[in-house]
Each structure stands twice: as C-alpha cells, then as structure tokens.
Nucleic acid binder design. Structure first.
Length: 220
DNA sequence: AAAACGGGGGC
DNA sequence: GCCCCAGTTTT
C-alpha cells in the first residue's frame, strides 16, 4: 500500500525529470573527466554539502586537477586546498576535512575508502547523507541518501512521519523496494529543487499533487 | 536545540 | 543589498 504509493510517485517523477544522477559522474557535482570512484565521489560529496551543483563542480574540478589522489591530498597545504575549493563555500572547513579525511584513508585504510557505514561515519564531515551517497553512487551498494529535500518532501507528501533525517532514512527504506532506493535521490531531490521548493512550492505544476497530503497554496 | 561555517545566484 | 541554499560539527 505505502510501497505502491512511493513507487508510483517515483515513476511519475522519473517521467517528469528524466535521467540524472547525484552526485555521480553524470551530475554537476563531479565533472566528466573524473572517474566516479569512491575517492572522487567522497570528496565531491563533501564539497557538495550546502552547495549548488555548479559551484561544487567548479571546486572539484580545480581541486582534482591539482590533487588527484588520497596520498597527495593527505599532505596538501590546507590553505591552498581552501583556495581551490572556495566556490563550494565553507572553504576552510571543507579543506581541513578533506585533508584530514585523506590522512585517515592513507594511514588506516590503505588509501582506500572503506565500505562499511560505521567506518565511513568516522571520517570528518561524513554524516549519514554523505556516506549513503558514496555507497550508493560509487560502490553499487543500495542506500537511501536523505538530504533536506528528501526529508521535507517525504513528510509533506505523507509518505513518512518523521522528525529527523535518520528516521526518514529508515522509514523510506521500509516502504521502498531496494532496487528503487537510488530513484529516491534522483527524483525526490530534483523535485525539491525545481517544483516542491522549500518555501514556495509550485503546487500548480506538481505532477504528484493529487497524492500529496501537504498541498500548499490553499489548493485542496 | 541552536549556532556556526560561506560563497554564489536570484531578485 | 537581502534572502536562500544537495550537512555536519560544535556549543
């Protein structure tokens, strides 16, 4: 029942928004010249936090052109890295996290990105959303990436009733077939950016409006 | 629970 | 100029 609802919503949104992935190779966050492997996706996803695609991409491009391995980044100068990633915002915070992150990868993980959620969460600036993106997009592991859009829309539409993004993650996993978890991010995030905007939802042009409990605009 | 981190784009 | 924004960490 609930499962049927979310699948139907994903089907409709996929027609509306077409193909597109976040933040793998075909997204704006990681340019086409970089392999969407765990290392590149991890760094690009950290850069993407609270940042639009285009700015994330400018930052990741200039960063990877200068440093393209965990080893080189682990010994990089934080101020120089901060300058390179400036377009993504939070430059010092992100630069410090990236350098520290790569230090941990080199020292404790053989310069590889660990696959387990538990180990990923020990890395600086890696929370549940970032860890899920790395696993889902770079490792082929089914994972639900809950950002603010997914959290907001899932509750607005009455798919879940949750207070925290973590609760939303588990709730969505419970009502969605595993093979469609990746569609949640592809389509719900895009929907949140283009139609179901945080403050002014454009309910008039929403393709899943009839299934939404939270229709704004007094359109009921 | 709330503040802090920040540059870029829309208006 | 002012407001908003694909999180995570710290207080």
């Amino acid at each position: 029942m609930a499962e049927k609802d979310i699948c139907e919503i994903l089907d409709i949104l996929s027609e509306r928004h077409g193909q597109g992935a976040y933040p793998g190779r075909s997204s704006e966050g990681l340019g086409p010249e970089w392999e969407p492997d765990p290392f590149h996706v991890l760094i690009a996803t950290i850069l993407s936090q609270r940042t639009r695609d285009e700015n994330t991409r400018r930052a990741s491009d200039s960063l990877f052109r200068r440093y393209d391995s965990p080893e080189s980044l682990a010994e990089a100068d934080v101020d120089e890295v901060a300058e390179l990633v400036r377009p993504a915002g939070f430059p010092r915070q992100k630069a410090r996290a990236i350098v520290d992150c790569c230090g941990v990868l080199v020292r404790d993980h053989g310069s590889r990105v660990p696959e387990s959620l538990e180990e990923l969460l020990t890395l600086p600036m890696v929370g549940r959303k970032t860890a899920a993106c790395v696993r889902a997009y770079a490792m082929g592991i089914p994972a639900v990436c809950v950002d603010t859009h997914v959290h907001r829309i899932s509750n607005l539409m009455g798919l879940v009733s949750t207070r925290t993004p973590e609760e939303t993650e588990y709730a969505l996993m419970g009502i969605t077939p595993r093979e469609r978890w990746s569609d949640i991010n592809r389509y719900l995030v895009r929907h949140g950016q283009t139609v179901c905007l945080p403050n002014r939802p454009r309910c008039g042009e929403c393709p899943v409006r009839k299934m939404c409990d939270g229709r704004a605009d007094g359109d009921r």
